[in-house]
Amino acid sequence: MVRLAELFSVLILISAVLNAGSPFIKFGIKLYSFQSLMLALYTLMVALYSNTSALYLSFLFIILFKVVIIPYFLFNTLKRVEIKREIDLALGIPESVLFAGSLTLLSNIIAERVIKTTVTFGSLIFTISLATFLIGAMLMITRKTLFSQIIGFLTIDNAIFLAGNSFTHGMPLLVEFGVLFDLLAAVLILSLIIIHIKKSSLKTGLRS
């Protein structure tokens, strides 16, 4: 079980790296969905491991919101604004992937230095969530189109969830639910903004 949890957490990081290495938005949304699924499975493992009933519910919520509803909204928005790939990245693909790798190295150093407290599966989870957080932030900075920035934002959110779930054996359920709902609202609003921008400036395309 611990090994499986490890595998899922590492796959969260890998999907974040893949996201940095792909210029395609659709693929990015699919990867986000996959990442959330891994997060959900990880939560399930933690739940099984620590036998916390609140985490089972959290698992269900993650599946519902992050794996299904938010990607669905994003796809829907994408269909309405018709952009397929981002052409202007602020940083080339190999460079940003290498940057993501160095961020992983960095977060590993930080994790080794900082973490002394007990975390569910060792400081590994902290490394991974920190690295995912940083890669998400990098995505938000280096991408020029709004869509990828949203994906970066969602990646950051996943990283925080991961950290939260492992630090305290799960956040209080109410907080978690609130955060999820907040996230959903944020995505909805951003989708509306995208569509609005698209309508108001058909020619110039989507630049934030």
Binding site: S22, P23, F24, K26, F27, K84, R85
Partner: peptide, 9 residues
């Protein structure tokens, strides 16, 4: 041709 990113690319 329109939707497969690798083909479009």
């Amino acid at each position: 041709i329109l939707n497969s990113p690798s083909v479009t690319d």
